[in-house]
Amino acid sequence: MLDLPDSAVLLGASAPDWQGAVLLAGAALEASGAVTAEYAARMVAMVEEFGAYIVIAPGLALAHARPGDDVLKAGMSVVTLAEPVVFGHPYNDPVSVVLGLAVMTADEHVGEIAELANVFNDPRVIGQLAEATTVDAVRAVLQVTQ
């Protein structure tokens, strides 16, 4: 599983809209050293191009973009929102948890993606993340290390 340092987690954050929420997930990825500032805008652009498909489960968005020069290393970030925001998804709005994901190559992290899927197959996990008040609690829910 990808590591989750303290710098990659923002709890109870405020975002005015979905763009703001995705930019926060990008800022957390940048703070942890995974990406440069440009990556956040590319994550927003994915949704502008393709729609709100990154809202893959009720209340959860998996923000990400393709590999690129702005990805320094693979990383994950977690942003929980004090007030959920609407992404425009037909079933899964509003979103209270945004995961940011950055990878160097498309195939490199298949194993970690599978572990992530494994964690979220428990339907309680999104609610547990939304209610987490400490970074340690987030790591415990996601079964990841610092």
Binding site: Y53, I54, I56, H64, A65, P67, L101, A106, F120
Partner: peptide, 19 residues
């Protein structure tokens, strides 16, 4: 299928294999 072929389609692939 997803937009980038990186994150969401990977999760879909894993869970489809389980199903």
């Amino acid at each position: 299928i997803c937009g980038a072929g990186v994150g969401t389609s990977g999760i879909l692939k894993v869970n489809a294999e389980r199903a």
